[in-house]
Structure formats: structure tokens, C-alpha cells
């Protein structure tokens, strides 16, 4: 009876030791994976920022938006581009990925009523254009509503309708992700 109890104690001890070892191992694995995930997240953010910086230079020269060979951005292409974007979204998703691209007019300083007002077809056909709006959202893809980091550059905006140049800011908001 005593021996039987002793052997039961032995078995319980072994199980306990194994249990403790497994728990320690599990903890180790969880901690390792947590660090690994963090490391990969940092890497993804780093690559995303690198990609966004390249995109900033690329967007200025993108034939869909730029003036031909003069280094400016052709505002008359914005609305046609948005229409084409709607028809071929998958293709542009491959080019831009998860980003938001906006262009804001900064000089001459827009009228108070035009600041942050989105330029669309309705605003374009009005006589007051381009004084009635001051911002174009060229592209926006953020399906998971992530918070993004922003980078921007100053660009020259050309209005071929009035043969006029203005100063704008091209801003790219990127979402710490290199997926497309």
C-alpha cells in the first residue's frame, strides 16, 4: 500500500516536472514569437517608408499626372486620372499599394472658403475654378483603416486652361504595410 503510494508520488512528480518544463518552453516560444512579430513589423514599416519615399519621386514623374518633360504636375489630368483609376483600380493598386495621395495648393494661398475643399467635376465646371477648391485626393486605398505616416514634397502645379503655374504640396500617407 505504501509502495503503491510511493510509485504514485513518483509518477506525479514526473508529470509535474514535465508540465513545468512544457510551460517554460511554451513561455519561451510565446516570447520568441512576440519579438519575431515585432521585428517583422518594424521591417515592414521600414520598407513601407522606403517605398513611400520612392513613390514621392515617382508620382511627380508619373505620366498620368505630370506635364510632359517639364517637371510639373498637370492639374487638368487629375479628373481624367480619377476616372481611369475607377476603371482600372487593380492596376493602380499594384503601383501605389496601401496609400493615400493628395495634392494641396499652397501658393497663392487659397481663399479661406477653398482651403481643404476637394476639387471635383462640379467644382471644375464652375466659373470660379480654380479658386473654389484647393485639394485633390488622387488615390486612396486603406481597406483596414490603419493609421498612417505622412511624407510630402513641394510641387509645381500647372493649369493648362489658364496657362498658369502655382505651388502645391504632394503628400503621401502610407500605412506601414508593403502589401498591395
Amino acid at each position: 500500500m505504501i509502495k503503491n503510494r510511493r510509485s504514485q508520488v513518483h509518477v506525479s512528480e514526473t508529470i509535474l516536472v514535465l508540465f513545468v518544463v512544457i510551460v517554460i518552453l511554451m513561455l519561451g516560444v510565446v516570447v520568441y514569437f512576440k519579438f519575431s512579430v515585432e521585428k517583422n513589423k518594424d521591417l515592414a514599416e521600414e520598407l513601407s517608408e522606403e517605398q513611400a519615399t520612392i513613390m514621392l519621386a515617382k508620382a511627380v514623374g508619373l505620366q498620368e499626372l505630370s506635364c510632359d518633360g517639364t517637371g510639373c504636375i498637370d492639374t487638368a489630368k487629375f479628373l481624367p486620372f480619377k476616372r481611369v483609376l475607377g476603371e482600372d483600380f487593380d492596376m493602380y493598386r499594384r503601383i501605389f499599394g496601401r496609400k493615400k495621395i493628395t495634392i494641396t495648393e499652397i501658393y497663392p494661398v487659397p481663399h479661406d472658403s477653398a482651403i481643404d475643399v476637394e476639387c471635383d467635376v462640379i467644382k471644375y465646371i464652375q466659373m470660379e475654378y480654380p479658386e473654389n477648391c484647393g485639394k485633390w485626393t488622387i488615390y486612396d486605398y486603406n481597406p483596414e483603416n490603419e493609421l498612417g505616416a505622412k511624407i510630402s514634397t513641394i510641387v509645381s502645379l500647372y493649369y493648362p486652361e489658364f496657362d498658369e503655374y502655382r505651388v502645391g504640396r504632394l503628400e503621401i500617407e502610407h500605412y506601414g504595410d508593403i502589401r498591395r
Binding site: 505620366q63 498620368e64 498637370d74 487638368a76 489630368k77 479628373l79 481624367p80 486620372f81 476616372r83 481611369v84 482600372d88 492596376m91 471644375y124 465646371i125 475654378y129 493648362p160 486652361e161
Partner: peptide
């Protein structure tokens, strides 16, 4: 695609 953009751009400029 670029031709479509230029075509629409010309149409819009004409209206102005």
C-alpha cells in the same frame, strides 16, 4: 490608358 486620360483632358479643357 494614357490616350484615354489625354482624350478626357482635351474634352475638359475645351469646356473652359
Amino acid at each position: 490608358l494614357l490616350t484615354r486620360i489625354h482624350l478626357e483632358k482635351v474634352g475638359r479643357i475645351m469646356s473652359k
